[in-house]
Design a protein around this nucleic acid. Structure first.
Lengths: 193, 193
DNA sequence: GTCTATAACATGATAGAC
DNA sequence: GTCTATCATGTTATAGAC
């Protein structure tokens, strides 16, 4: 069973994303996989390494498909819409990526953030950076990336809160609607002429 | 010293917002205030009660003067810029509110979120809703609010990660620059004609 | 590759002196 | 109101059998 490592990574992703690093014990993860806590140490040297491997694995899984989807499209505006739609779809289907990302921004120490940035994020970041350069050669690409990502993540993150606010929409907000909302806002602002 | 309770709440807010519930021990909080761990139990019956009191206190404190700042301005676009600037400034000056908000979105149960929405957000939410209605009568105000909030929060949240990404900007990104970036993007999109 | 056993330490909470 | 001392439990990690 070489696949134990894979199962560990998946169980860990589920637990860490929901309960955070400190909120999950090695026993919790072992129990989820059906082995004892000590056995984990055959696959990973310590909790920290398991966590970093988990995050890396999760980021790789998620960013790969999106990058591929983008690479076939020439028109920048169209590529943007595909990117936004793909990110929304991916993180709705599997919220673990988005939760870990948010968590790391909240409590990640410098060392963990550096590891994540290097191991998991750089490959995904480059095509985004290029896209923003094409869309708006005179703006700061990083600012644009962060604005886009902030909208995407927050719309999904806020779904649990939204129904409790005044003027709550009757139906739930679907991915296609969010995709076009964010794309239009990003391209043309609040009131397209 | 009746103020020990207040100091406990402030220290707890700082620590919980940074490290999460499970990531903070009663000893950590006690040390930050300069008393022993056992002494906390004179003020709060257990860790859970301390956490809930902390969040409530923080959200009450943060029932913002932002609404007031907005209320004096007639022009919607100008009001938007003031709002964005004020939110950026407030949550940079005291990141605890923003962090606890993000944290509650991540792991808050339905009951807590409902309480937060009603007690802390409704009063702040209404003028935003009105502003979006003025700016874009044909768009969904809630979607616009979430997009705006997502950008604001994410730009500040991502600051720790940004230096580790490729093409990292040389200088740090200041509030005035972020304010104009978000405002312009929100009003006119990526490439204002 | 997984187990049992255990070391070494951290944690939430309580008891009782002052 | 705060202290010291303590308890019971949970934690990461290691050692060694199978």
């Amino acid at each position: 069973m070489e696949q134990t490592q894979e199962r560990l990574l998946n169980a860990a992703a589920e637990l860490f994303s929901k309960q955070g690093y400190a909120g999950v014990s090695m026993r919790d993860i072992a129990r989820a996989v059906g082995i004892t806590q000590a056995a984990i140490y055959h696959h990973f040297p310590n909790k920290d390494a398991l966590y970093i491997a988990t995050v890396t694995h999760l980021f790789e899984q998620h960013t790969l498909g999106i990058s591929k989807k983008m690479s076939t499209i020439d028109d920048p505006a169209q590529r943007l819409e595909v990117l936004i739609g793909a990110m929304l779809e991916a993180t709705e289907k599997d919220p673990r990526f988005r939760r870990i990302y948010m968590r790391e921004l909240l409590e990640g120490d410098e060392k963990k953030l550096a590891a994540i940035a290097e191991n998991a994020f750089t490959a995904f970041y480059e095509p985004l950076y290029a896209l923003m350069g094409e869309l708006a050669p005179d703006s700061d690409p990083q600012l644009l990336i962060f604005s886009m990502a902030g909208m995407i993540f927050h719309h999904l993150e806020v779904r649990k809160l939204a129904p409790h606010l005044p003027h709550a929409a009757e139906g739930s907000t679907g991915i296609p609607l969010l995709t076009s909302h964010i794309t239009q806002l990003f391209l043309h602002g609040v009131n397209p002429a």
